[in-house]
Design a protein around this nucleic acid. Structure first.
Length: 826
RNA sequence: GCGAGAGUGGCGGAAUUGGCAGACGCACUGGACUUAGGAUCCAGCGGGCAACCGUGAGGGUUCAAGUCCCUCCUCUCGCACCA
């Protein structure tokens, strides 16, 4: 009898499917567990990253199932996206055909891995039954003002003639044609994620099941800063310029003002003061620079005087107003009060243009002088040269200044976020149409609900020149206004694919629901996701958008949860030869070859054994051999004892038995304990597998003396049953086969997880380590129930101990029960 | 620059609360079986002849430090003119 993975795997995959072993319903007699892995983009074939991600999720799902949970473990396809469109351009294949044939192929590959998905719940986001509901959400968001249209500066690729999402711009270049990306102002649809900035931030402090790293990244991305807005009157006018600052305590040191080149006031002021020509030259030049250069640190700070002055309300100082390249129009008010002594950018700017520097914060224990300063002092200190505020510690000063401002009506307390609203318009074909029409009379009108979905029209070919493909389809564009019936044009942009992935986990709960996006009861039963697993690359985008979406759906009355994912596991990358697997590096291992050569169980076992899930996994062909070898050894071991244990009832209860049987039972229970703890407390599958390997090593060495076999077989049966069940989540196919081989009924996958008795797991002897003056000098085997007196007697009687202690005085005696003795002698 | 994480044999990686450093696996060495072995099984495997020395470097706390404290070095990741 030889281990034949292909035959075994085919057999059990077929049986699981025939018997619907992994199909789930809302069974209220069991606790629920929703285990989810980030769904793949159907790019063509699965890669090692998928294998790792989905294997981790599968172990967790199968383990929880055996622990008695009702487990939802679904799979689907993030099916809209650019690669489909590119394939269409390059190969002339329709994006839908290309996508669906990829899905067919990848589904087969995933099934071949033996993952425990409930395939009846499979979804593809490009299906009208899916995006229909997304369009409905969009309309509801539009009605609540959470989806709106505005002009915005977008990344524009002049070669491809299209807008690029931020993630499609790599180091200032177009990801597809490598030309320099510029900006262009266009009408865009936005989702108002900033409305939820505070809540999104707030919850990061309560999400205990998420890695701290991800939470920190999200907090940084949201980028909350608190401070004040202050009005600076324009000299010779009633107008005011409003700035945002986080350092109101430094306002006495503000000596000039910087405003963004694209700020409408910039050219307006220049015109008024006869500086139009040179300011416009500067503005044009800066706006031509790409944003990546302009916002990088290397970019030199430069600016131009607009000719205008404003007045510092606190000091009465005339502050020249500069247009400066480093001021961002989109952040705060697009204008900044410049405090050169206490802000590095302003410092550099002031030095360059010879502007005054006034120190208003003194650090403790040193005195700053503007002439001798080499850089700005940005830390807290004591306020100086600040009128009635002089002498206040700067932190208190912030509060005092804000109160003063508000009293005087010069400004107010203010909070700013770095987070911007989410631009979702894409000039793409292969995406969900934005369900809006533009009527000459009624303006922007959402498509009525009963007309949803706005179907993506068939298209002959996609223009490689780019631009919105939908805009070229007359029958699609030309429509009538739902309100007045007059002539209207459809929106031709489609939605960012991140919109689809922001709610797919909800759809899985009732994937075939026709009356709504999902069935409320199923959502209330399954959500939130108990364990979410995926790559760290989505730490901000997908994970933040999903959080936002759930909060919006909550406020629209669809769900009653605040957060979608209770626990998050970010798995490490798959590395080979010191680099991430990638086509360009040529270090890709195709999972399909692996399966062909070793079978799915080996592929699974290796990815689990090589590293804990959250760490990077170093690929090693020899390591795969090792995994394969282990499965063979386990198979041969069970095969050898198969006849002996068939039909024998396993040992149960806490009676240890005697001799060999007792040793076997001790090993069995110890192993159950170790494997369970490693999986349960921290998902460290590598050490769980190591424990099982040790158990196999032990069992392989067993020599059963003639005549003893009767007494030993129940213990052996228990051992094999346990071993097989412990390994089932990791290598399910071979475990099903072995389960059958030892004569057990039903599916191993459906058995309850083995239990252990603490009494049996504990050993009856322990090895006592004896240290003398901090060095290990002896080891003694002791009975587990030996008390300190007994231990002391045994230690002092030990030959090696006597050698070191001799007649010397024992100055210290430390006893750690069941572990060690530490003796200090002079 | 700021933030987070990590440095342990030839390699991947183990070491509850400070308590035998190197589990388990790979590679390697020797042996057995064999026509053969790149299959399988058995044994060995941090360094050093040894006393001893060994967890990035140097200090410290402790009977005892990979683990705690201080200083420093290296690497990885994230953010980086956000006022």
């Amino acid at each position: 009898m030889k281990y034949n993975p292909w035959q075994i795997e085919e057999k059990w995959q077929r049986k699981w499917e025939e018997d619907g072993v992994f199909r789930v319903t809302e069974d209220r007699t069991k606790p629920k567990y929703y285990c989810l892995e980030m769904f793949p983009y159907p790019s063509g074939r699965i890669h090692m990253g998928h294998v790792r991600n989905y294997t981790i999720g599968d172990v967790i799902s199968r383990y929880k199932m055996m622990r008695g949970y009702n487990v939802l473990h679904p799979m689907g396809w993030d099916a809209f996206g650019l690669p489909a469109e590119n394939a269409a351009i390059q190969q002339g294949e329709h994006p839908a055909r290309w996508t669906y044939s990829n899905i067919e192929y990848m589904r087969k590959q995933l099934k071949r891995m033996g993952f425990s998905y409930d395939w009846t719940r499979e979804i593809a986001t490009c299906a009208p039954e899916y995006y229909k509901w997304e369009q409905k959400f969009f309309i509801e968001m539009f009605r609540k003002g959470l989806a709106y249209r505005k002009k915005a500066l977008l990344n524009w690729c002049p070669t491809c003639q299209t807008v690029l999402a931020n993630e499609q711009v790599e180091a200032g270049k177009c990801w597809r044609c490598d030309s320099d990306v510029t900006t262009k102002e266009m009408e865009q649809w936005f989702l108002k994620i900033t409305e939820y900035a505070e809540e999104l931030l707030d919850f990061t402090y309560r999400m205990e099941g998420w890695p701290e790293k991800v939470l920190i990244m999200q907090r940084n991305w949201i980028g909350k800063s608190t401070g004040a807005e202050i009005d600076f009157p324009l000299e010779g006018s009633d107008e005011k310029i409003r700035v945002f600052t986080t350092r109101p305590d430094t306002v006495f040191g503000a000596t000039f003002m910087s405003i963004a080149p694209e700020h409408p006031l910039t050219l307006e002021l220049a015109r008024r003061f006869g500086k139009e020509e040179e300011v416009k030259k500067f503005v044009d030049r800066v706006l031509l620079q790409d944003r990546f250069y302009r916002t990088s640190e290397e970019a030199e700070k430069e600016g131009v005087f607009t000719g205008a002055y404003c007045i510092n309300p606190f000091t009465g100082r005339r502050m020249p107003i500069f247009a400066a390249n480093f001021v961002l129009y989109e952040y705060g008010t697009g204008a900044v009060m410049a405090v050169p002594a206490h802000d590095q950018r302003d410092f550099e700017f002031a030095r360059k243009y010879g502007l005054p520097i006034i120190v208003v914060i003194q650090p403790e224990g040193e005195e700053l002088h503007p002439e001798s300063m080499e850089r700005a002092y940005e830390d807290p200190g004591v306020m100086v040269q600040s009128g009635e505020f002089t002498g206040l510690p700067s932190e208190e000063g912030k509060e005092a200044i804000i109160r003063y401002l508000e009293e005087k009506g010069w400004g107010k307390r203010s909070v700013n976020y770095r987070l911007r609203d989410w631009g979702i318009s894409r000039q793409r074909y292969w995406g969900a149409p934005i369900p809006v029409v533009y009527c000459e009379k009624c303006g922007t009108v959402p498509v009525p609900e009963e007309e949803l979905p706005v179907l993506l029209p068939e298209v002959e070919e996609i223009n490689p020149e780019g631009g919105s493909p939908l805009a070229k389809i007359e029958e699609f564009v030309n429509t009538s206004c739902p309100d007045c019936g007059g002539k209207a044009r459809r929106e031709t942009d489609t939605m960012d694919t991140f919109v689809e992935s922001s709610w797919y986990f909800l759809r899985y709960c009732s994937p075939h629901c026709e009356t709504g996006p999902f069935d409320r009861e199923s959502i209330d039963y399954w959500m939130p996701v108990d364990q979410y697993i995926g790559g760290i690359e989505h730490a901000v985008l997908h994970l933040l958008y999903s959080r936002f979406f759930v909060k919006v759906l909550r406020d629209l009355g669809y769900v009653s949860i605040d957060e979608p994912f209770d626990n998050l596991l970010t798995q490490g990358m798959v590395i080979k030869d010191g680099a991430k697997m990638s086509k360009s590096k040529g270090n890709v291992v195709d999972p399909e070859h692996l399966i062909q050569k070793y079978g799915a169980d080996t592929a699974r076992l290796f990815t689990l054994f090589a590293a804990p899930p959250e760490k990077d996994l170093d690929w090693s062909d020899q390591g795969v051999e090792g995994a394969s070898r282990f499965i063979n050894r386990m198979f041969n071991l069970v095969a050898r004892y198969r006849e002996m244990v068939r039909g024998v009832p396993p040992s149960t209860g806490k009676d240890e038995g005697e001799g060999l049987a007792r040793e076997i039972r001790h090993w069995t229970h110890r192993t159950i304990k170790r494997v369970t703890r490693e999986i349960d407390t921290r998902f460290h599958f590598n050490t769980a597998i190591a424990a099982a390997m040790e158990f196999v090593n032990f069992l392989s060495k067993l020599q059963i003396p003639d005549g003893e076999s009767e007494r030993v077989t129940p213990a052996l049966k228990e051992a094999f049953r346990s071993l097989i069940l412990l390994m089932t989540p990791f290598i399910p196919h071979v475990c099903e086969e072995l389960w059958e081989m030892i004569g057990e009924e039903g599916y191993a996958s459906l058995q309850p997880w083995p239990e252990f008795y603490e009494e049996l797991a504990a050993s009856e002897k322990f090895l006592l380590v004896v240290q003398i003056n901090g060095k290990v000098r002896s080891r003694l085997e002791m009975d587990a129930d030996a008390g300190e007196e007994e231990v002391k007697e045994a230690v002092l009687a030990d030959r090696r101990v006597k050698e070191y202690v001799g007649g010397k005085e024992i100055k210290k005696w430390v006893y750690v029960p069941k572990k060690l003795v530490s003796i200090v002698v002079s």
